[in-house]
Deep mutational scan, measured.
Amino acid sequence: MPSETPQAEVGPTGCPHRSGPHSAKGSLEKGSPEDKEAKEPLWIRPDAPSRCTWQLGRPASESPHHHTAPAKSPKILPDILKKIGDTPMVRINKIGKKFGLKCELLAKCEFFNAGGSVKDRISLRMIEDAERDGTLKPGDTIIEPTSGNTGIGLALAAAVRGYRCIIVMPEKMSSEKVDVLRALGAEIVRTPTNARFDSPESHVGVAWRLKNEIPNSHILDQYRNASNPLAHYDTTADEILQQCDGKLDMLVASVGTGGTITGIARKLKEKCPGCRIIGVDPEGSILAEPEELNQTEQTTYEVEGIGYDFIPTVLDRTVVDKWFKSNDEEAFTFARMLIAQEGLLCGGSAGSTVAVAVKAAQELQEGQRCVVILPDSVRNYMTKFLSDRWMLQKGFLKEEDLTEKKPWWWHLRVQELGLSAPLTVLPTITCGHTIEILREKGFDQAPVVDEAGVILGMVTLGNMLSSLLAGKVQPSDQVGKVIYKQFKQIRLTDTLGRLSHILEMDHFALVV
């Protein structure tokens, strides 16, 4: 994948999101292997301009796509893939009243899908469409860049269908997702969380590099694949309309690839034109409109599966009536509230959605109805927002919020430890010299600072030695090549209790 991002070429006709291997024109390309080798690009942008032909009021008969309808489940399912879809609609009884809503608040519980998330729908649909058009064949390999849930859905379907599955996901995604993927037989590649989507090191860039190296491999490409919004247009939206008897006044959905909100909203605009569509985008993402909503100094966020630093091709923002931004604290607070007060075992993005819903639905009156999409299960986040310690460490809970008995030293300040200034190293000294210094002084790690004293990161003896043994660096290389740029900081005025929580999850903390 090139470091400079080429513009994806656009073909003359058809839909841009065809499933299957992508040609340089962004659509299915038939021909000899030699032709494909000559024409197939190194990668295709996940934010390529959409060429979708959908228009409100256009006859369904003019759609270029294969459409399906929700099917009634048999008493005995032939395999677990038949437990994807037909998820329950559940009334939220307490939270709406707590925040003064007059309307009825309903939750579409997508964590009841077989793999635990709304992404099971698009995973199965992308595979079925690729099999139907002859792209996927027995023994082929599926590769997908994902925040985890699409990966789980694909790995689940691949396990049943017999495909090899490789999932490329950023490091910030939970260990629970990784464990589930491994249990399903998927191979996992992790990428830096802070890598831009168009960087060769991003999950998108690495996935395309693997595709170019592995024979008979395919990126189904949830960011561009029409099967993504079509899955929701054909099934999720129809289920909502049936469950609500066609009567709903507002739908609120958090947005990642945009397939969920695009597919549902398009069908609702056709069948229930008075329904307002509300999009939820986390602070630090750029999906919301108008652009002024996205202006923030924050560039990272903890909530998973929603928000991006690019506009995915499948996201149709014209069908969203209003956007709201959400933050991590309210997302996790509301997710825990949904679990504790409503018994809905949902993930953090569901918290984002409901946090926005109780604001947006203030305009609705008694007798009206708001539906929220709860995308995934708490299963993926047992060591994250479900953990009091994690919430404390991230600053989303305060010590006084917890009532468990603490040891005698818990409320003492870090400054009472009488710490001395640490050994520091410059980023320009060599790895070999740094190892000598650390061994001589008896230290395992040291902060790396520039000549102005600005902290650049941390270097550890173990990481340097393993990097040297693996051949990633040489003793003569500058130590700046092996620094940890993500590390926890703590102030002298913070409590030892807070430091204790940090050290339970990290090997060190830097006192500043």
Rank of each mutant, 00 (worst) to 15 (best):
P2K: 07
S3D: 02
E4C: 12
G11S: 13
P12S: 10
G14S: 07
G14A: 06
P16S: 05
H17K: 02
H17D: 04
R18P: 02
S19T: 02
G20E: 13
P21N: 13
H22F: 14
A24V: 13
K25W: 02
L28K: 07
G31F: 11
S32I: 08
E37T: 05
R45T: 07
R45E: 10
S50C: 02
Q55P: 06
Q55E: 10
G57R: 12
R58Q: 12
E62F: 07
E62V: 07
S63D: 12
H66I: 15
P70Y: 02
A71C: 02
S73I: 15
P74F: 08
K75E: 05
I76M: 15
L77D: 02
D79S: 12
L81F: 08
L81S: 09
R91F: 09
R91G: 13
I95D: 02
G96C: 13
K108A: 02
C109G: 02
E110T: 04
N113E: 02
A114W: 04
A114S: 14
A114R: 06
G116V: 15
V118G: 02
K119L: 02
R121S: 02
S123M: 02
L124Q: 15
R125S: 11
D133R: 14
T135P: 04
D140L: 02
D140S: 09
T141I: 15
I143S: 02
E144R: 04
E144C: 06
E144F: 02
P145Y: 02
G148R: 02
I152G: 04
A157R: 04
A158S: 12
G162C: 02
Y163A: 02
Y163S: 02
R164W: 07
C165G: 09
P170C: 05
K172V: 02
S174W: 05
S175N: 10
S175I: 12
A186G: 06
E187V: 07
R190N: 08
R190E: 02
R190G: 04
T191Y: 05
A195G: 02
P200F: 06
P200W: 09
H203N: 05
H203W: 05
V204R: 02
V204G: 07
G205S: 08
V206E: 07
A207N: 02
R209V: 09
R209W: 08
L210Y: 02
K211G: 02
E213H: 05
I214T: 02
P215C: 02
P215Y: 09
H218G: 02
H218A: 02
I219D: 08
L220N: 02
D221K: 02
Y223N: 05
R224S: 02
S227C: 08
A231G: 06
A231S: 06
H232W: 02
I240L: 02
I240T: 15
I240R: 02
L241G: 08
L241A: 10
Q243G: 02
Q243C: 07
D245W: 02
G246Y: 07
K247F: 02
D249K: 13
A253L: 15
S254E: 02
V255A: 06
G256N: 02
T257E: 04
T257Y: 02
G259S: 05
T260H: 12
T260N: 06
T260D: 02
I261N: 02
T262R: 04
G263M: 04
A265F: 02
K267Y: 06
L268V: 06
C272R: 10
P273M: 14
G274C: 02
C275P: 06
